[in-house]
Every structure is written in structure tokens, then in C-alpha cells.
């Protein structure tokens, strides 16, 4: 099964390298949001540092929604989805490969945007890189698990681009809360137990919704 996942992954990476559609638009969007958020505070305000983790995650989640909207659009528009569905692979292979594709692209954008955020907001983002890496990993995984599932739904609705955030936001609230709080704790150099308290909820979220997505994805693709 995993080698079929790799086949689709290879195809999607190659397509993205050629078109640069998803990563490039997510990246530009993230940077613009970072700059615009800066204008919503009085110049030189210290408050911006307290709000930074929230702004960081809001930016990431908005950017990822922008990217994840594309997950199935180019498959559906060219009829390729039918090609994938005709292939002798389980439906879940399609889900897992798309999940990985989204995860890789979003993580890439986060890794580029994070140091720039640090510069813009005069923030030391590398106080404890290991903890931050863990929080980013599980949180990004959390909203890609949900986002990949919902983008397969959204692509078949009348208002594709609008539907994904409407479905995604209320469900991913636990990830948003916990990611922001954990990141705040890390930036304020609080104890590991505080960070872990938040992180474990996200891990719980990831596990539960991976199971739910695993079970329900085939119902979405069916005709």
C-alpha cells in the first residue's frame, strides 16, 4: 500500500515543482498577513509580542486552507480523479497520499515563514526549537487530517473555496487553541509540563480524527 502512496506523492510533488501553485501562493499569503497584522497594533507596542503566537497560527491556518483548497481541484477539473478511482488501489491510499502532500507543503511554508515572523515581530523563535518543532508537527498534522478530508467534500460543493473554511474552523478549534497556547508557553520559556499539557490534546485530536477520516473517506469519494 505504501508504495502506491509514494507513487501518488511523487506525482503531486512533481506537479507542484512544475506549477509552484500551492507553495508559492501560501507563502506570499503568509508574508502579507504577517505584515498586515503588524498594522493592527500601535507602532512600537509591546502587546504585539503577546499576540505573536496567535498571529503566527492564524496565518498558518489561513494559508493552509488556501493551499488545501487546491488538493482535489486539479484532480477533479481534469477528470484525473476518475483515473485515480479506476486504478486498483484502495480509496484510503488516495487520502493518505493527499494528506502527506498537504503536510509537506504546509510544513515547508511554515519553515520559511517562521524565521521571517521572528524578524518582523522581534521575537526569538528558537528559545526551545525541539518543543516548537513538536508543537508545529502535531498541530499541522491536525489541521491537514481534517482539511484533506473536508477538501474532498468542498471540491464537490457549489462554493468550493468558501465551504472548506466553514467546515474546517469549528472542527479545528481545539488545535487552534492548543497550538497558540503551547507556542505562547514556549516563547515565554515556561515549563515543559505546561507545553505538554496542550500538546497532548492535539495528539489526541490527531489520533481520533485520523481514525475517523480513515473510516469515512471512502464514503466521500463514492458515486
Amino acid at each position: 500500500m505504501m508504495n502506491k502512496v509514494a507513487v501518488i506523492l511523487w506525482k503531486d510533488l512533481l506537479t507542484e515543482i512544475r506549477s509552484k501553485e500551492m507553495v508559492f501562493s501560501m507563502l506570499v499569503f503568509s508574508l502579507m498577513v504577517a505584515v498586515i497584522f503588524n498594522f493592527s497594533f500601535p507602532p512600537g507596542s509591546d502587546f504585539i509580542q503577546d499576540a505573536a503566537p496567535g498571529i503566527l497560527w492564524m496565518t498558518f491556518i489561513f494559508a493552509s486552507l488556501l493551499g488545501m483548497n487546491r488538493t482535489f481541484v486539479y484532480e477533479v477539473d481534469k477528470g484525473c480523479m476518475q483515473g485515480l478511482m479506476l486504478a486498483p488501489i484502495d480509496r484510503i491510499v488516495i487520502y493518505i497520499s493527499k494528506l502527506l502532500v498537504n503536510f509537506i507543503f504546509i510544513t515547508l511554508v511554515e519553515l520559511i515563514a517562521l524565521p521571517l515572523f521572528g524578524i518582523f515581530f522581534k521575537l526569538d523563535v528558537l528559545t526551545s526549537p525541539g518543543q516548537l518543532a513538536l508543537v508545529m508537527l502535531v498541530s499541522t498534522l491536525g489541521f491537514t487530517i481534517i482539511g484533506t478530508l473536508f477538501s474532498a467534500i468542498a471540491v464537490n460543493t457549489k462554493t468550493r473555496e468558501v465551504m472548506l473554511p466553514i467546515l474546517h474552523f469549528p472542527v479545528s478549534i481545539p488545535v487552534i487553541i492548543c497550538a497558540v497556547q503551547a507556542t505562547t508557553a514556549i516563547f515565554q520559556e515556561q515549563a515543559w509540563s505546561v507545553v505538554w499539557g496542550w500538546t497532548k490534546i492535539v495528539i489526541f485530536f490527531d489520533v481520533i480524527f485520523f481514525i475517523v477520516a480513515f473510516w469515512t473517506f471512502e464514503f466521500i469519494l463514492e458515486e
Binding site: K4, T15, L86
Partner: peptide, 29 residues
């Protein structure tokens, strides 16, 4: 599915891949 080939009005091909890459993709699937 292994024994079925479908040709439709839609080509199921990826615009950004070359002819060879498209065939390699489906061949591996």
C-alpha cells in the same frame, strides 16, 4: 480494476507532467 481500461472524453492526464511521466504514473499505480 486491473483488467479494465477506460477511454473517455476526459483524458485523465496531468497537464504539468510529460507524456512519459503520465504513463509512468499510471503504470506504477
Amino acid at each position: 480494476r486491473r483488467q479494465i481500461g477506460v477511454i473517455a472524453h476526459q483524458t485523465f492526464l496531468y497537464d504539468d507532467l510529460t507524456a512519459e511521466e503520465n504513463l509512468r504514473f499510471y503504470g506504477r499505480l
